[in-house]
Each structure stands twice: as structure tokens, then as C-alpha cells.
Simulated scan of single mutants.
Amino acid sequence: MRTVYVNGQYLPEQEATVSIFDRGFLFADGVYEVTSVLGGKLVDFDGHVARLERSLGEMEMAAPADRDELLEIHRELVRLNEIEDGMVYLQVTRGAPGDRDFAYPAEETDPTLVLFTQSKPGLAKSPVAKKGIRVVTIPDERWGRRDIKTVQLLYPSMGKMMALKAGCDDAWMVEDGQVTEGTSNNAYIVKDGVIITRHLSNEILSGITRAAVLRFAREAQMRVEERGFTPEEAKAADEAFVTSATTFVMPVVEIDGVAVGDGRPGSVATRLREIYLEESLKTAI
């Protein structure tokens, strides 16, 4: 039986509840983070906390706990649920300050803080990484503040289902003729040894894994260009891949039915995955 955390209490999951007036439920008025667990330790925890603080600030929401308190909760859930490999999901909403109203109170309200774990044995040894994934491109029809990690995930969910119905694994979203990102990951291509990924702006999420992978790539003397690229450019690339907290570096071998390179995971993506996992495990807490 899984133990979860709700507003200061560790509870069996079937006993965990929040108010029907919680603004996260009524308006998607909330933010979240997902931290991977490898070998019982948290990967890139401080990066996730920093992004959480930024998201809360952009949403004018009160922080429910400081860094050390959040670390204690994460570690306790990992311990209670005996998580060796998996993830910890954290969500903060504006809470339930009153009856349903589009306008939220000008003053700070008591936020709702929820965390739970998911066990994913062998997370870093996924066989999918050895064969790569296939993606389709879809129009990017999300709101304009994608840099805030909100729980407003309806369109990415719809995009994931579009991909599955097309017999693929995921979707890359396209706006003004250029790829923005995947439904739950950042997107990259490799051409002539250069790693290309969209530059940071309000149009994409600043991925914690993205930041680490690009840092490791530069340290390994790999060339990186942060700029937009088109679906056509991606299909003509030598390699493609995505990054996220739970897939790490995942090769992409097909886009819209067109094989990328020779249709197999490329050497750059494969090497970056190895480097990321090796270096991240050294600093996991």
C-alpha cells in the first residue's frame, strides 16, 4: 500500500483527499515537479526545487515549504515506499481560499501540497533506449506561458494520444513552422556533429535534464546550437533525441514515418545518455 503526502500528513493513498473547491481541481491553478529516483537517491533535486520556486513566483503563489523541508518529505516518501528506482511527483496548488471564482485572492492563500511516488524498477536500463522511439509532429496549440511548469496538461495529453493512435511513441509540437518541444520532453537533433535544440523562452519549458545534458555535452567538447529547427530539418538530421527527468536521454529514430539517420539510436545520443546517468548518479542525494 502506497503512502502519499498531503498538507503535512503521510497517509495511505486511499485516505488522501483535497477539497472539491481546490483551485488546482477547478482551474488547473497549480504547478508541479517530477524528480527521478535512482538507487534510492534523488536526481537533480536542487534544480527541480529552483524551477519550482520560479514557477510559484510567476504564478504569484506562496511556497508551501522550503528546500530542506521538501527534501525531507521526498526522502521520507522514498523510504516509506521502498523506492529504489522511480520518481517523486510534487504538486502545489493555490488551495481552496473560498467558493469558485475566476479571480484568485490578491493576498497569499494557504497552498495545497501533494507528493506521491511511483516505482519504476530498472528505470535507467530501459530497453526502449536501445531501439529508440518514433514521433509524429502535431500543431502546438498550448497557451503562451509554457515556461511555467503548470498542471495545465490537457493538450500534451491529447498529443500523446494522437501519437499512440498513429502507432508512435510521442509527438513533437510545431509552431510557426518550427519544433517547440515534445509532449513531456525537450527535443533535439544532431547534424554534422552539432547538437541543435530550441532556445529558451516562454515557448518551451526550461528542462532540468536539458540544462544538465547541454552542460555535459559542452564539457565533452560537443558543439551545441540553441535555435529553432523545422520538422524537415529534423527528418534530414543524422540523429534526434529527447530529454526529460524520467527518460533521461532517449533516442528518436523516426519522425512522421521518416527514419532519422539509419533508423537506429545514434552515437551522440547514446553517449550523452551514458554521461548523464554516470554524472547524475555522482551528485544524487
Rank of each mutant, 00 (worst) to 15 (best):
G122V: 04
A217S: 08
P156G: 01
V179E: 00
A106G: 15
M162K: 07
A211H: 04
I204L: 12
M161F: 00
L115S: 06
A187S: 12
G177A: 00
K165T: 05
E175T: 01
R134A: 13
F102M: 12
I138K: 12
V151W: 01
T150K: 04
T197N: 06
T183I: 12
H199I: 04
V213S: 02
N202S: 11
A124H: 09
L113K: 10
R134Q: 13
D176P: 01
N202A: 07
A124D: 14
K130E: 15
A187V: 02
L123F: 09
E108M: 13
R134I: 03
L113D: 08
K131I: 11
I195S: 06
L164T: 12
A187R: 00
R145Y: 14
G98V: 09
A171K: 00
S206H: 09
G207A: 03
S184W: 08
D101H: 14
Q152D: 10
T137Y: 02
I133N: 00
V136C: 06
P111W: 06
K160S: 07
N186V: 03
T137R: 01
L200W: 10
S206N: 11
R134L: 08
T112I: 10
C168N: 10
A217R: 06
P105W: 09
T180Y: 02
V128D: 03
I189H: 04
D169T: 07
E219W: 07
E141T: 15
M173G: 00
R134Y: 03
